[in-house]
């Protein structure tokens, strides 16, 4: 059996990658993708510890999170699409009509 600390390390690396993507990127779509990576990081934890504890709850949560992520992307893309229709851009830096 693999020491569970390895999973935590792996998931935190995933989380950091995702967070880096959110903070660094200017393209909204890439930001959404980075958020998905962060959700995956949480999923890794849930699934790993689900098997560690022999407890199905974690895997159920992972299923739910996958669904939530899908819904999030659906709404996100819809909003970004209507933004693109108005401004011809989805660059975050250009979202400055409202003071940031």
């Amino acid at each position: 059996m693999i020491d569970p600390i390895n999973f935590v390390i792996f998931s935190s690396i995933l989380l950091l990658i995702g967070a880096y993507g959110v903070i660094k990127n200017k393209n909204s779509i890439v930001v959404l993708m980075s958020v998905e990576i962060m959700l995956t990081a949480a999923n890794v934890n849930f699934i790993a510890f689900s098997s560690y504890y022999n407890d199905l709850t974690g895997q159920i949560v992972a299923l739910f999170i996958t669904t939530i992520a899908a819904a999030e992307v659906a709404i996100g893309l819809a909003i970004l699409l209507s933004l693109f229709k108005q401004r011809d851009t989805i660059e975050l830096d250009l979202l400055n009509r409202l003071r940031w």
């Binding site: 935590v8 998931s11 949480a42 934890n45 849930f46 510890f49 709850t57 949560v61």
Partner: peptide, 9 residues
């Protein structure tokens, strides 16, 4: 969610 997953862990 990540915080919750750590609590679960």
């Amino acid at each position: 969610l990540y915080g919750i997953s750590l609590l679960y862990a």
